[in-house]
């Protein structure tokens, strides 16, 4: 198939299994975010795709060609590093033109293309600046323009926006996504920020412990997390311990109508805070005590203790719940909004 295919890729550093049996297909033109906590193997996986690390096993195919043994410089990729890795001895033009210089592109063509790229990242006129003179966002743009200079087949970014402040980061996320859509280039971004992943990606690959936990669209991942790890990592969620007695699912000893679950140990019910509905005491499927109320302006979070567990319900200010700390409260949710996951 056309696109990037990883099959059973592994990377072991001595006794440490950084990446274990990762198989993944990325069709051309897709924007993929690899998401996971630090140490989950996502950066190692990206570096193997780039050829900067040699896989211990498995193969990597690009448009049907096995590139597992192809050295980095022949893989036709563009990469943005976490440190950006701009060359301090070259000015902005020199940095952007580097890949073209390596390929022996003519001066005139190089000049034209650098102008085009600077235009593309909204930095026209900055060509002769030294990279030390640029702001964080400008450096970011130069790094992106540099990676895209020779129209690579793969565009890889390793935590590209982590050095920017929150506001600029969000603006760049949108910009990056728009740029990718315009160019139609296969893009893989490594991030630990799930909001970033949700904003940009066609496909989110959640990794944990060196393995892929789930690879799906952002909505799918959010709505139907494959396991407790994914559910917990993507957004915030309530994980309610589930028991199945005589074919009926129960939590905290109460039956949960409408929840179908096989009779198995270690199952949990993932319910997003915004899906929990508060009810007067005595009503609703479950009953708990209000422990804390947090008013964030856009949402109001109510923390409820049930049988040693703490659940969170999020409501909009329009449906502000009439509860105080210490009150007994009932709570319920639509069965369709709850997902049974295993730990």
């Amino acid at each position: 198939m056309s696109g990037l295919v990883l099959s059973e890729v592994r990377k072991h550093f001595g006794p440490v299994h950084a990446v274990e049996d990762v198989s993944l297909s990325v069709p051309n033109g897709t924007f993929v975010c690899m998401l996971g906590p630090s140490g989950c193997g996502k950066t190692t996986l990206l570096r193997m795709i780039a050829g900067l690390e040699e896989p211990t096993g498995g193969s990597i195919l690009l448009d049907g060609r096995d590139i597992t043994a192809v050295p980095t410089h022949r893989r036709e990729l563009g990469m943005v590093f976490q440190s950006l890795a701009l060359f301090p001895h070259l000015d902005v033009t020199g940095n952007i033109a580097y890949a073209m210089t390596i390929r022996g592109v003519g001066t005139a063509e190089k000049k034209r293309r650098v102008g085009e790229l600077l235009e593309m990242v909204h930095m026209a006129g900055y060509g002769d600046r030294s990279v030390a003179q640029l702001s964080g966002g400008q450096r970011q743009r130069v790094a992106i323009a540099r990676a895209l200079a020779v129209q690579p087949k793969l565009f890889l970014l390793d935590e590209p926006l982590s050095a920017l402040d929150a506001k600029l980061r969000e603006a760049m996320q949108v910009e990056l996504r728009q740029l990718q859509e315009r160019l139609g280039i296969t893009t893989i971004v490594v991030t630990h920020d799930q909001r970033e992943a949700m904003t940009m990606a066609d496909q989110v690959v959640v990794m944990g412990g060196g393995r892929i936990r789930q690879a799906a669209s952002p909505v799918e991942i959010y709505r139907h997390p494959a396991d407790a790890f994914v559910a917990d990592f993507i957004g915030s969620t309530n994980l309610i311990p589930l028991a199945v007695e005589n074919g009926t699912a129960t939590a905290f000893g109460k039956p949960l109508p409408g929840i179908a679950a096989p009779a198995r140990d270690g199952q949990m019910l993932s319910v997003r805070p915004e899906d929990i509905i508060l009810a007067p005491a005595g009503e609703g499927a479950l009953t708990g005590t209000v422990a804390f109320v947090r008013d964030l302006g856009a949402t109001i979070e109510t923390f409820i203790d049930i049988g040693g567990h703490r659940l969170v319900a999020a409501s909009s200010p329009r449906d502000r719940p009439a509860v105080n700390v210490g009150d007994e409260t009932g709570l319920s949710f639509h069965a369709g909004n709850a997902v049974v996951v295993t730990a």
Binding site: A50, L52, P71, T72, R74, S83, A85
Partner: peptide, 18 residues
């Protein structure tokens, strides 16, 4: 900063050139 060298390689420079 070794990422400088890696960056050069991703842009098509052989290790010697980089």
């Amino acid at each position: 900063d070794w990422s400088l060298l890696e960056a050069a390689r991703t842009m098509g420079a052989s290790p010697v050139k980089a």
